[in-house]
Every structure is written in C-alpha cells, then in structure tokens.
Computed example of a mutant assay.
Amino acid sequence: MSLNPPDNAQEQAELLQRLQADLIDSYDEELEMEIDDRAFDDPAAARSEAQRRERRAYFQELFRLQGELVKLQDWVVASKHKAVIIFEGRDAAGKGGVIKRITQRLNPRVCRVAALPAPNDRERTQWYFQRYASHLPAGGEIVLFDRSWYNRAGVERVMGFCSDAEYEEFFRTVPEFEKMLVRAGIQVIKYWFSISDEEQHTRFLGRIHDPLKQWKLSPMDLESRRRWEDYTKAKEVMMERTHIAEAPWWVVQADDKKKARLNCMAHLLAQMPYHEVEHAPVTLPARERSEDYARQPVPPQMLVPEIY
C-alpha cells in the first residue's frame, strides 16, 4: 500500500512511529491470548531464557502462518472455492484456541465460524442435517464448524440424547451427506483434537480455579469428564465409520496447545492449492476539504469518561 507523503520529514517520522505503534498493539493481542492460556501462578518473569526463545519462535511461526492464511483467503475469494472445516474433540481439547488463531487476521465475511447451540424443540423435529446445511459456504467462503453434525456420534450418543435408531441412521447418512457436499464442490476437512486423560484433567482444574474461565465449564463438561471412557469408545466408532476418502479424519495431537495450533494451521494450508493473488497497488486518496466546513464539537455529556 502506498501513502501520500506527509508535508515534511518530521511528520513522516511521526507517521512511521504511529504505524509501528499500531503494529506492536496488534502483537499485544496475541500476548493477551497467551496470558489467558496460562495459569496466574506462572509469571512471565519466572520463565527461563530457553522458554523465552521458544515463545519468540512460536510467535514468529504463528505470524508467518497467519500471513499464509491471508493469501489463502485471497485465493478462496478469487477462485470461488468453498470449504467446510470441522473441529471436533473432547472438552478443553483446544478447538476454540486454534479457530481463534486461524480467523484472527481474516475477513469474517469470507471465513466465518459456525458454533451451533443445542437444537430447540422445532429443530429436533427437522431432518438432522437441516440446521447445519443453512451454514454451508457459498463460492468464495470458508466455514469453520466449532463442533458439527458429529455431535450425534459423540455427546448425543454418550449422554443418551438420541435413540439407537437415530444413531444408526446417522452413520448410514453422514458418508452420503459428505460425499454429496464434495460433489457439489465443497471441500470437507475434518480435524479431531486429541488430548490425554491427564491433560484434560489439568485443563479442567485450570478452568475451575480461573474466574475468567469458569464460564467455559458447564454441567455437561463435568459429566463428560466422568464418562471419559464412554467418549473414547464413541470417538473410535465414529472414526471407523466416517473416515471416507472424500472427507477423511485428521488427528491433531493437542496436549501441547501451541504445537497443536501451528500443526493444524500448517496442515490446513497444505490441503488447498492456493497461490498468492496479485492486487493492484492501493493509493490513499487525498481528503477533500471545503472552506465552509467546520467540525462540530461533541457535547461533553456524550463523551466516555477518560479514566485510563
């Protein structure tokens, strides 16, 4: 992007300083996310030099991959590609964290997240896939499902929210449903985030003792912890019966959150034949100025108090 040059060198230097400050502010967003991811009893000051180097390397690679995702987004728009990306896994497996990093730099009109609540009374009477179908992408769109139609093979099966007949009908239908999506030109990518028993236990404890994360724990989450083995059996059946050539499952080892994010992002980029799309140079136009225009002051009672 080219900017009209400021009137003098001092203004140009001030502009560059502002741009650098804005860039640093954007990096602070990632730091805030990482602070949210770690326990309060692990202050940054206690980190070793090796940990700090590892942290810098993580952010460097995260920013690089996010830059590639922007290129992917441009290609998706230019080529009218359609993609559905499914994120499944146990509670606290890190699905939300990777979705947040994937979408952070992208246009929400191009790459959007579908995180559907439990079906209401009307939706329970519909064809099972109906409420998901309304969120499918048009040309030039990517839809990330934070949990998906695979709820029926997981939580609904384990918690008894569906009958045996509905469960079996799901497995008869879902391969054909996904093959139909692929025939319609929608790429379907399915990720399962795999964490160990011990890691989920630790993450649940972190949520219990962190007042900023307690909202993430629902009675269903706590019950899923008790039924760990039932969820394991359900997951194994699901993968065995729905791992098809047109839409295979990909397993992300997720005990290490940062590695899981980077590995998933890198793998996702490799699933599409994207390339950098050339854009015409952008020049910021000069603002028109009128001699008879004067900006009106804001009434004091409308101003937000500047307490910071």
Rank of each mutant, 00 (worst) to 15 (best):
F145L: 05
I102Y: 00
E169D: 15
D37A: 15
L205Y: 10
S79M: 10
Q20I: 07
W149I: 09
W249T: 09
N107F: 01
E240M: 07
E229M: 10
V70W: 04
Q296S: 14
L3K: 10
G154H: 05
R172E: 13
P43M: 08
G94M: 01
L3E: 11
L284S: 13
Q12D: 14
E288N: 12
E123W: 00
G160L: 08
Q20T: 07
Q51W: 07
K95D: 00
G89C: 08
K216T: 03
A39C: 10
H209I: 03
R53F: 11
L303I: 15
I86Y: 01
G97P: 03
H81L: 10
L212G: 03
N120L: 07
M265G: 03
R47G: 04
A92I: 02
M180G: 10
Y150Q: 04
A21L: 13
A234N: 03
V98T: 11
Y231C: 02
E32A: 13
P285T: 05
L65V: 04
C264Q: 09
H209W: 04
I99H: 03
E34H: 11
A39D: 11
P117D: 05
V143E: 06
G206Y: 01
Q104D: 14
E54I: 08
F87S: 04
K80M: 13
N120M: 10
T202Q: 12
L262S: 00
L65N: 06
E141H: 04
L16V: 14
K71G: 15
N263A: 15
H279I: 06
N4K: 10
V77I: 14
Y167I: 08
M302E: 15
Y274L: 02
W192L: 14
R225E: 06
W249F: 11
W250Q: 14
D197L: 13
R289D: 02
L65C: 03
P5I: 08
F129Q: 06
D256F: 01
A44L: 15
E166Y: 12
E141C: 02
S48W: 01
R38V: 15
